[in-house]
Structures are given as C-alpha cells and as structure tokens.
Simulated assay, not measured.
Amino acid sequence: MTGRRDLDAAGITDPALRAGYELCRRLNARHGKTYFLATLLLPPQKRPYVHALYGFARHADDLVDDLSPGLASDAGRARRFTAWSEQFLTDLEWGATSDPVTRAVLDTIARWQIPTGYFADFVDSMRMDLTVDSYRTYAELDRYMWGSAAVVGLQMLPILGRADTEVRWDVLEQHAIALGTAFQLTNFLRDVGEDLRRGRVYLPQESLDAFGVNRDRLERGRVDESIRNLLAAEIERARRLYRAADPGIDLVHPSSRDCLRTARTLYSEILDEIERRDYDVFHGRVAVGLPRRAQVALSGARGAWASRRAGPTTPTGSAS
C-alpha cells in the first residue's frame, strides 16, 4: 500500500508506468535495505524516482554478476549484458521502451531532466566488470567508480534538490561525487571475500604492494597484520571521502537531508563494524545491527517529519 500511495503522491497514473516503478521499489526493498530505509525519509512524491534509479542500477549489476545456470560463464554473462545494454542505450536515445525497469528510469530522467550521459557512463563501468578483475592504481579504480558510483550521486541531485538558488550547483556536485564514491569504497571493503569468489579484487594493486599483500594471500582468507594494515588504510581513504561529502548535506533541500544523513551514517558505520570484527571481511558479510539501524532510522524519521511541517517539500531542482 505504501508504494501505491507514493505513486499517487508523485502523480504517476499510467498503469504500465506504475508497474515499472513498483518493480523498482521491490528491487530496492529486497537488495538495498539501507538505501530503502533512507529513501522512506524522503517526501512520498520523491520516493518512486529514487527507487527507479536504484532499480536500474541493481538490474544492471545483477546481469553482470548473475551466476544462475547457463550464465555462469563470462561469455554467457557478457552476451546477456551486451544485449540488454545495447537495447537500453537505444531506448535512452528514443525515450521509449517496453522494459518495465527502463520505462520507470526513462520517466524519471524526463521528469527531472537528468543528463543521459550519466547513464551511459554507468553502463560503461558495468561492462568493465565483465573483463576487468583488478586495478593497478587507485586512479584506475577511480575511473571505474566514476561510472559505478559518482554518476549515481549526480543522478540523485535533481530529485534531492538544493537548499536554495544561492547554492552553487557545481559545489553540490562535488559533494555528491564524494559521497557516491565513499559508498562504493565501503561496499568494496565489506565485500572483499565475496568479490574474490567472483574473481575480482577492487583494492588497488598499489595498495596491496604497499603492505606486502598479494592476491593469493587475500584468497586464503586469514587476517594477519599486513591485511589489517591494508584494510585500515583503505578505511581511512573512505572516511576522508565521507568527510569531504558532509558539507553537501546541508546544501540540499531540507526535506532531503535526513535521507542523506541516515544513509551516510549507516553506511559509514559498516567501516566501524569491519574494525570491530578485527578486519575479517572474508567470513560472512559485515553489517550494522538491526537495533542500530532502527535507532538511526527513528532519529531520521523525526527530523524528516519536522522538516515537512516546517515548509514545502518541493526541492529547488537542477542547475538551470
């Protein structure tokens, strides 16, 4: 019922379009629990569009990582992703599609005037996951993260909106890039073991070399002092990005701030949990506990409710 009310609030009435948005909402709820929780703190009329962006990204990521029978080979996944991505880029150019997830994201792009180049860049990075299994330097990894993470933050900005027209859009964009990249690095650190099982390492080789760690050592999954020092250095890199992103939260529209604060708090605390587990990222996924997630969400909900009562929830949108 919540999804229907959100679609009503957003003025989305076409049945086929509503079905696409609802599919994206379910993808977000199933796979992106922290993001889904944070999205609930946005005004109802904004939530479907964030679900659409998440659903699109998740769908593409699933195609790349799908290990179901018949697609377990690199060639099988590449064929499926290539077919989907070529169709998506064609649909993006035409502005129309028969795919329900793409239908929702195309509507979101049109309503919020989101630059289509961000989506092409995202597809390019997802394509890299089919052929690239490691990165020599952080600069190389950063180029990958531009498409996989930074542009996702930029896609979100028109929906989140600015506090007022005095806020420079280019300044806001830099904070969004930092936050998107911080989220991505946090994912990489949390998922070291999982990514290794997929044949990938997202820690730069230059970082491994600096601490005397090689891929074989990571694959053994035993935490030693060198691995602790490596992960500690990468955690600090992620925390610097979170600190760089923080001033941007006060620059978005008040109705969007508690969503961002909640996502930032819960995601950054994954780094704290890695430390509490003595850097064991090989055996079981590191996660923030349910009581803490509930505590942060409740605080965010109070703030979101107060901001809605204080003024209008329609953001000042894009750079125009």
Rank of each mutant, 00 (worst) to 15 (best):
I270D: 08
A245H: 11
D224A: 09
V252L: 07
D272Y: 10
G212T: 05
S268A: 14
A245G: 08
L266H: 13
L271Q: 00
S256Y: 03
R220C: 02
A238W: 09
R215L: 15
I227A: 01
L271H: 08
E273T: 09
D278M: 00
L231K: 01
D280L: 01
V223Q: 00
F282W: 12
A263R: 11
A263K: 05
N229V: 04
C259Y: 08
F282H: 02
I274Y: 07
R228M: 05
E275H: 09
F211Y: 15
R215M: 10
D216C: 14
I235W: 05
A233L: 05
L241D: 10
I249T: 06
D280C: 11
V281I: 05
A244T: 13
S255D: 03
R261G: 12
S268Y: 02
D272F: 08
D278K: 00
I270N: 03
D280S: 13
D250R: 14
R228I: 00
F282E: 13
E236N: 09
I270H: 05
E273S: 01
I270G: 05
R215Q: 14
C259E: 04
G248L: 04
D246P: 00
R220V: 05
R240Q: 14
R220D: 00
Y279S: 07
R228Y: 07
T265C: 12
V223W: 07
R243W: 07
E275D: 08
H283E: 06
T262C: 15
D278F: 02
Y279L: 01
D250L: 01
A245T: 00
G284C: 10
D258Y: 15
L230T: 02
L266S: 11
P254A: 06
S256K: 04
T265D: 12
E269N: 06
G248Y: 07
I227G: 06
R264G: 12
E225L: 06
I249P: 08
I235E: 12
L230Y: 13
T265S: 02
